[in-house]
Design a protein around this nucleic acid. Structure first.
Length: 575
DNA sequence: GCCGTTTTCGGCCCGACTGTTTTCAGTCG
C-alpha cells in the first residue's frame, strides 16, 4: 500500500487553512497552514515517511501541532478539525471565496446574513438585489459579483500559459519596446524570469516611462490601457495579461527584485531584513537606524543591503535559498554551456522531422560533442515504430554517419517502450548492440500506483537500460503525472546506476524541479536531454537546464556535462 | 500556528487598489 503523496498532504493542509480562514482565525494562523502546505509540496522527501520517523518538524513551518495533524491524516485518512469545520461551512462557500473581490470575510457575511452557501445562491441573491442591502456591499459590488460569476470565476481556475509560449510573446514585446527606445533597460520579471513551468501573466520592467503609452500599439497586444502614472496593462491576442511597469533607473533593482518574486521569497527576505532593522519594498530599502531609504540600480545591491550574496531568480521560491545564501553556501548552478551532449533525439526513422545527418550537424552547431539517436521502438504505434530489422539497419546508418561527420560523436540508441510488465520491447540481444538505451512509458498510463512503480523499478533494474526518460509522464497544464512512487523509482535508479532524465520539452520538464532535487540528493545521476524531434528543438535544452537550476543542481549533478568517454564509464554496463 | 545573534511570548513583509467610507477594512499581488 502506498502512502499519501506530499501533494495530497499539502492539499489537506491548504483546505484546513481555508476552513480556518472562513472560521475567522487570525491571519497568521491561516498563513501558517499555507506556509506548511508549501513546505510539504516542495519537500524533496516523503513527508509521510518523515512523519513516521518523527522528523517532520525539521521542515520549515511545521511544528508540533501540524505534525500531529499530519499524523492524524496518515492514520485515519482525515484531520478531525477539518471534519468539524466542513460540517459548519458548506463546500460552496469555498467556491465563493475563489471569486475575485470576495475573500473569506465578505463570504462569511454573505453566508451568515443571507444564507448564501454556493455560487448559484449567490447569483440568485444578486439578481434579487438582496446583496446591496448588506452593510459594506453596494450596488457596484453586486454588479461586480454578477460579472465575476458570468466570467465563470467560481468554476474553473484561470488557465496558465506554458513557459515557452509566454517567453515567445515576452521576447516579441521586449524587442519591439527596445526598437522604440533603444537606450531603455527592459527586463522580463515575474515567474517567467524565475523560469517556472507556466505563468499566469507577464511582468515587464522598464526605465523609460514613455514606453507605457506604446504598449497598446504593439502587434501582439489586443487592448491596453494605463493603470497608473507608472504602469500599463495589456492583453495579448492569446488572452494573456501583460503588466508593464516603469521605474526611475536608480530604483530599477528594487522594482525588478520585487516583481521577480516569488511572493514567498520576498516575504521571507523582508522578514529577515526586519530583524536587521531594514524594510525592503519595491521602492527601496529603508534603514531604521539612519532613516535613509537606499535606492538600488541592481538587484545585487538589494541583496547586499540585506547582507546576502546575489540569489539567482530560479532559486527564489523560498525553498531554503535565503538561509543558504546567508551561510554563503549557495550552489554554483549548472549552465547551458556546461552541457556536452544530448542523449535523447528523434529522426525520420520514427516521428522526427530531420535525418540523422541533419540532426548531427545541428547538434554540432550547438557545440555538442555527442548526440544519441533514440528513435521510438518496436511497439510505439502511430506508424512511428521501428521494427527490430529497421533498428539493425538504423544502427549501421548511425555508425556510418558517425564515421562520415567530423566533430561530433553519434551514438546508436533507442527510446524503448517500457511494457506494462516493466520489460523493454526489444530483445536483449538487440539492445546489447546499441550504444545507448533510454526507456520510457508511452502506453498504459492508467495502471495503479503500485503496478506503475513496480513496472518502472523493474525497467530501472534491467541491465541494458541506461536511463529512464520523462519519468512521470506529466504534460504541464494538460496531463497530471501517472500514479507512481517517485521516491521508490529514484532509489531504484540510484542503486542500479540507472540515470534519470530531465526531459527538456517545455511541455514536459520531467523530472520536475522537486523530483530532480530529490534524485540528486539520493545520489542518482541526472541527464538533461532535449527529446528533439527536429533540428530546431535541440534548442529546447534550455528548458531542462532551467528546471535543473530550479532543482539547485550543479554541473557535477548532471551526467551529460561529462565527455562521452567519462559518462560511458559510469554506466552500469561500461561500453 | 510558528519561531528566536534583541524573544519560550509577542510578534509575524510591503504597498496598491477598491468601495463605501468621514478614517478604513478587505482583498490582492
Amino acid at each position: 500500500m502506498s502512502d499519501l503523496s506530499n501533494g495530497a498532504i499539502a492539499d489537506a493542509l491548504d483546505e484546513l487553512g481555508d476552513l480556518y480562514e472562513l472560521d475567522g482565525a487570525v491571519v497568521h494562523r491561516v498563513l501558517a497552514y499555507r506556509n506548511a502546505a508549501k513546505a510539504v509540496r516542495d519537500a524533496p522527501l516523503s513527508v509521510a515517511q518523515l512523519t513516521r520517523d518523527g522528523a517532520v518538524t525539521t521542515l520549515p513551518g511545521i511544528g508540533a501541532t501540524l505534525a500531529q495533524k499530519i499524523t492524524d491524516l496518515l492514520d485515519s485518512g482525515d484531520i478531525p478539525a477539518a471534519i468539524k469545520l466542513r460540517e459548519r461551512y458548506p463546500e460552496g462557500l469555498l467556491a465563493i471565496t475563489a471569486l475575485p473581490g470576495l475573500g473569506p470575510k465578505r463570504a462569511r457575511r454573505l453566508f451568515d446574513e443571507l444564507g448564501i452557501d454556493s455560487p448559484a445562491a449567490l447569483r440568485a441573491a444578486a439578481d434579487a438585489q438582496r446583496i446591496r442591502t448588506l452593510k459594506g456591499f453596494g450596488a457596484k459590488g453586486e454588479a461586480a459579483i454578477i460579472a465575476a460569476l458570468e466570467a465563470g470565476g467560481a468554476e474553473r481556475p484561470r488557465t496558465r500559459v506554458v513557459l515557452d509560449r509566454a517567453l515567445a510573446i515576452a521576447d516579441v514585446i521586449a524587442t519591439a519596446l527596445a526598437e522604440i527606445a533603444p537606450t531603455a533597460q527592459i527586463e522580463i520579471a515575474g515567474s517567467a524570469r524565475r523560469r517556472a513551468d507556466s505563468v499566469k501573466d507577464l511582468d515587464i520592467v522598464v526605465d523609460h516611462a514613455s514606453l507605457l503609452d506604446d504598449l497598446g500599439g504593439l502587434e501582439v497586444i489586443e487592448t491596453a490601457s494605463r493603470t497608473s502614472a507608472s504602469a500599463a496593462r495589456g492583453r495579448t491576442h492569446t488572452g494573456m495579461t501583460v503588466e508593464l511597469r516603469a521605474v526611475a533607473p536608480e530604483q530599477f533593482g528594487n522594482l525588478l527584485q520585487h516583481l521577480t518574486g516569488s511572493g514567498a521569497h520576498n516575504a521571507a527576505l523582508r522578514e529577515r531584513a526586519v530583524r536587521a532593522g531594514l524594510h525592503i519594498s519595491e521602492y527601496g530599502v529603508l534603514d531604521d537606524a539612519t532613516g535613509v531609504t537606499h535606492h538600488c540600480v541592481s538587484e545585487a545591491e538589494v541583496y547586499a543591503l540585506a547582507g546576502l550574496p546575489y540569489i539567482e531568480p530560479e532559486l527564489r521560491e523560498n525553498r531554503g535559498e535565503i538561509e543558504t545564501a546567508a551561510s554563503g553556501t549557495l550552489p554554483r548552478l549548472i549552465e547551458l554551456s556546461d552541457i556536452r551532449g544530448d542523449l535523447h533525439a528523434h529522426t525520420t526513422a520514427s516521428d522526427g522531422r530531420a535525418s540523422i545527418e541533419e540532426m548531427a550537424l545541428a547538434a554540432r552547431e550547438r557545440g555538442h560533442e555527442y548526440l544519441a539517436i533514440t528513435d521510438h521502438s518496436a511497439t510505439h504505434g502511430f506508424g512511428d515504430d521501428v521494427s527490430p530489422e529497421q533498428l539493425r539497419r538504423q544502427i549501421e546508418l548511425v555508425h556510418e554517419a558517425d564515421a562520415a561527420i567530423e566533430g561530433i560523436r553519434l551514438l546508436a540508441g533507442s527510446e524503448v517502450n517500457i511494457l506494462p510488465d516493466g520489460a523493454p520491447d526489444y530483445e536483449d540481444a538487440l539492445l546489447a548492440e546499441l550504444d545507448w538505451v533510454i526507456a520510457s512509458v508511452h502506453t498504459s498510463f492508467a495502471l495503479d500506483g503500485d503496478a506503475m512503480t513496480e513496472r518502472m523499478c523493474r525497467a530501472a533494474g534491467h541491465p541494458l537500460i541506461d536511463a529512464i526518460g520523462h519519468p512521470t509522464g506529466r504534460l504541464i497544464e494538460r496531463r497530471p503525472p501517472y500514479e507512481l512512487d517517485i521516491e521508490a523509482l529514484i532509489a531504484a535508479c540510484a542503486s542500479t546506476r540507472t540515470m534519470l532524465e530531465i526531459n527538456s520539452n517545455p511541455d514536459r520538464r520531467d523530472l520536475n524541479e522537486v523530483h530532480a532535487r530529490a534524485a540528486a540528493a539520493a545520489g542518482a545521476a541526472i541527464l538533461v536531454n532535449s527529446d528533439a524531434h527536429s533540428t530546431e528543438r535541440l534548442g529546447a535544452m534550455r528548458y531542462g537546464i532551467w528546471t535543473a537550476r530550479r532543482a539547485w543542481l550543479t554541473a557535477a549533478d548532471v551526467a551529460n556535462t561529462l565527455p562521452w568517454a567519462e559518462l560511458a564509464a559510469r554506466l552500469k554496463r561500461p561500453r
